[in-house]
Design a protein around this nucleic acid. Structure first.
Length: 479
RNA sequence: GCCCCCAUCGUCUAGAGGCCUAGGACAACACCCUUUCACGGUGUAGACAGGGAUUCGAAUUCCCUUGGGGGUACCA
């Protein structure tokens, strides 16, 4: 058997890929890639009612978009399949039986009412709830009698009372008193495995060496270790990551807005920025350079250096980072990505060259791709309102500048950006020297008249894109 | 109720006993650059939750309190 590192993520397709799951996937991926290990994807679709194919597909797509490609999984296969948990139902009962045979598990016929009563009793006594083991020593006769009544038993794991210690990859030594755990159910009375049992069997069979997951799984860990031990299997390493919290410090949920990777993408976040941002929640680069690709992060990644506390998901930094990625992106690629956000307009009215130019000159202040719809609107809508710039246009100074441009438009070569640029410079100089108008005021007049805005992209390029006819027309209607 | 985890600027974090009068990034603010906004640049403000203990010396170790988070299911 090789000692190659094997990690996995096991999302449940009861929703689109959650950003938190994406981070867990990332840390697993980084951990494995750093040492040339394998990254496995297993879909935990045991809960058939809540699982759906659309969600499964979303998980595939999101993971791929983030660059987290798996070596083994439902779609690509692998030597340890099947990778859909729902296709593995037949393998759990025999392991449960094995545990019963070895005395590590037993059948339980208790009703929900009985169990509830025990629980209430425990709370009343201010003590931990631990199953009473009422069914531990049932004789065969008693069991048959109960079975004859039509009662189907669940199977409980017999928890050995001891101090259980394991060394968590991120949190260090963790100790548990297993006498507080109570014999837990591993097979439900309907014959399906419980989560804690299924994961252990799957991870064991899939040869998973390291389990990195959210800290909401910490209390499952001792139970799972106990099962590994009873099975005589090698216990994997465990690492528990702090959770991602919303700004109100509760678990990040739909109530807080976007939670799925695909939601963020729809809003105009780039997957490169997203994954980079999420890596910084708990991990920090040794060289202080925060903008990094997954590959670069992998080189520098050490699981022991990951923060063990929770972190709050704030948009400020994500927005900044997304802006950084937008600025770095190749224009043709960016243009392709931006077109969907311009669906409100007739994009086809511009040749590709001008479309790319629009993207090039309007990308600078973008933080999220969707902002382009507003920022570039005046390139697509000719009958925009001047309300926003009324104040500017009402100034005599502005009217004068606008008239001057209209009168001299024939001298401008609107097919040549450089010429427009120079003419605008001349315009500023002219009004500054003859009328003492500030360059800013002169330009504001032109901008307001041609775009209906007081702010926006470079003026010369904007005029070039619009072309002489539309520029003159807009100047006139602004008066 | 019981069990567990966590605790440095508003947020993400650096910091593994003296290098810390606590560093960086985002956000904020100011200034500079500039045809606007933005980008960029420079700077300002801003934190070791509280209390004990150990030590010559603690953000760093230990204990308590407080606060936050998670779990406590025949959900995953």
């Amino acid at each position: 058997m090789s000692d190659k590192i094997r990690v996995r993520i096991a999302p449940s397709p009861s929703g689109n890929l959650h950003i938190g799951t994406a981070r867990t996937a990332l840390f697993n991926f980084l951990y494995a890639k750093k040492v040339g290990g394998e990254f496995v994807l297993r879909i935990e679709d045991t809960d058939l009612d809540r699982s759906s194919e659309a969600f499964t597909q979303n998980i595939f797509d999101s993971l791929k978009a983030l660059g987290l490609n798996w070596d083994e999984g439902p779609d690509v296969g692998g030597p340890y399949g099947p990778y859909y948990q729902s296709q593995r139902f037949d393998i759990y009962p025999k392991y449960a039986q094995m545990l019963i045979d070895k005395g590590y598990a037993y059948e339980c016929f208790c009703s929900n009412e009985e169990l509830e009563a025990e629980k209430e009793e425990a709370i009343k006594n201010h003590s931990a709830y631990v199953y009473s083991r009422k069914c531990l020593n049932l004789t065969d006769d008693e069991k048959n009698e109960l079975r004859a009544k039509g009662i189907k038993p669940s199977i409980r794991f017999k928890v050995e009372h001891k101090e259980l210690v394991f060394n968590d990859l991120v949190k260090g030594e963790l100790k548990f008193d297993t006498s507080l755990i109570g014999d837990f159910v591993i097979m439900k009375s309907n014959g399906t495995p419980t989560y804690n049992f299924a994961v252990v069997i799957d991870d064991m069979l899939m040869n998973i060496t390291d389990v990195i997951r959210g800290e909401d799984h910490i209390s499952n860990t001792p139970k799972q270790i106990l099962i590994y031990e009873a099975l005589g299997a090698k216990v994997p390493n465990f690492g528990h990551l702090g959770m991602i919290l919303a700004p109100d410090r509760t678990k990040l949920s739909k109530r807080h807005g976007a939670t799925a990777v695909s939601d963020f993408v729809k809003q105009g976040y780039l997957t490169d920025a997203l994954i980079n941002f999420v890596a910084l929640l708990g991990w920090s680069p040794s060289d202080g350079v925060e903008i990094k690709s997954v590959d670069e992060i992998a080189k520098d990644f050490r699981i022991h250096e990951v923060s063990s506390s929770n972190s709050v998901f704030e948009y400020d930094k994500l927005n900044w980072m997304n802006g950084q990625y937008i600025k770095k992106m190749e224009i043709p690629k960016l243009t392709d990505m931006i077109i969907p956000f311009l669906s409100k307009y007739d994009v086809a009215k511009y040749p590709r060259e001008k479309l790319e130019k629009i993207v090039e000159i309007t990308r600078e202040p973008l933080t999220v791709l969707s902002e382009i719809e507003h920022d570039a609107s005046y390139f697509f809508e000719d009958n925009f309102s001047y309300d926003e710039v009324r104040e500017v246009l009402d100034k005599d100074l502005s009217k004068e500048v606008i008239r001057y441009v209209i009168d001299n438009a024939d001298n401008w070569n609107f097919d040549d950006e450089d010429d427009i640029h120079n003419k605008l410079a001349d315009l500023r100089t002219y009004f500054k020297e003859n009328k003492s108008y500030k360059p800013k005021e002169t330009m504001w007049a032109v901008r307001a008249a041609t775009t209906g805005r007081t702010r926006g992209a470079d003026m010369a390029e904007t005029l070039w894109i619009l072309g002489k006819d539309r520029v003159v027309e807009r100047l006139k209607s602004a008066l």
